[in-house]
Nucleic acid binder design. Sequence first.
RNA 1: GGCGACGUAGCCAAGUGGUAAGGCAGAGCUCUGCAAAAGCUCCAUCAUGGGUUCGAUUCCCAUCGUCGCCUCCA
Length: 485
Amino acid sequence: MTLQIFNVLGREKQPFEPLEPGKVNMYVCGPTVYDYSHVGHAKTYVSFDVVVRYLRFSGYDVLYVQNLTDVGHLLDDGEDRILKKARQSASTPMQVVETYAREYFADMDALGVLRPDISPRASGHIPEQISMIEALIEKGKAYAVNGSVYFDVRSYPEYGKLSNRRIEEQQAGSRELVQDEKRHPDDFALWKRAEPEHILQWESPWGMGFPGWHIECSAMARKYLGDTFDIHGGGVDNIFPHNECEIAQSECANEADFARYWMLVGSLMVPDADGIPVKMSKSLGNFVTIKDALQRQQPQVIRTLILTSHYRSPLTFSDDSFDSAKNGWDRLMGAVRLTRESLRFAEGNDQGNGFEPVLAQTRQKFTEAMDDDFNAPGALAALYELTREVNTLLNADVKPGKAILEAIDQTYRELGGQVLGIVPDALPGGANAEREEKLIRLLIAMRAEARKNKEFAQADRLRDELASAGVLLEDRPDGTIWRIE
RNA sequence: GGCGACGUAGCCAAGUGGUAAGGCAGAGCUCUGCAAAAGCUCCAUCAUGGGUUCGAUUCCCAUCGUCGCCUCCA
């Protein structure tokens, strides 16, 4: 089966056909870097991380661009959020931007999110934005007023096609402030005149000012991906007005289609006081930062939690769902650990090679799920089913040979590691702690001796002491294995 | 009010016109010196009411409920 993608533009699953065979140009709206990122951001960027990883796994050459918004994103009161933060923290805007851009990458790195190929910043692309605005004015799609420039939505009949919104004619008069400058309430700013005290401002044909929030994505996408490209991603909450405006600006300025496939990620929800799920957001204050989440759980567990729900669906984030993901992931890792442990002593025979078909089935089920609009929950299910089979195999009397164990390990590494990013290459407490490992093995040997002599009190003491130090033992017919809790 | 999405077991969550993946939790069993881990077994008729159909959880309509967007948000 070929890859199917649910295209928000048209609201249907469509076979994925890139503009250029084998090559995927992709743009995802990045964060505004004015504060720490929270788990809601993690959901979006982990989701697209898996999309990119799977596309590459499938053989596509992916060029992944994700911007950083560092100017032009205003608050309700018209203040730039970066400037506000700078004022509050007694620093300069670019310090704020630099600080939180680094924190963002640090968080994403910790979550195992691969870096985009290009991470362009809005403030670094002012000329590109200005020239796009000029083109829009020339084509009669935008107009300048008092040093600001607005996009004329009535000049673009397709405005609203992504979010299915119609331009409201009667609503005029319902808006305050800027209203008088706009010809139509739905017109949006391409360029804003800056007051003298506004620190972030640039020269333009219309005087000193700064770009509107939406134009950056249009300008940068065109610069790095061309007029028309394959996939545009983001969170659903930006479908209107942001994504809609991007389309309008780009298609008018470029006189070409913008993104061919739109993929929007469902929001992360948090139960409110009454247990009703509400979107996690900065403004509501119901957020958990990625740093806090990482304090509580391993990054792979956070990814697992995110992947238990389809990317388009909302996902409720709670202690229960967190624990559930953690316990499931532990079982997965148990099988991975057992496989790698068994590999240490495996012989080079073909014992257990009858297991091959299970691996083939796993791969098939996995890719079928992922080919169906990146159905990660289905792909995860394939890994869980594999895990049951692997545990059965490794707990049986026959000792599987090296070949099949390596094949199993490889399957986990590729599907669970390379694609989903939940199976680490090196298990915690592995070979890099050689001395510790030796000590643990010594204690295990001492306990084995005690057990042999039926000195169970002594044996239990060793096990309990190790457990209290975070080293958990498991007795198996052929010896004792351990893991770090 | 407009637009969109959704309502599947105790919880989370896939999916299909022919009686429903997976995970967590729970119960029983096996293995074990005891544990731990693992495995096996058990646990839903898919919000409600109509309609289409040989047959619907899956298609259509209505109702109820929830969420998102419409103003800043990934």
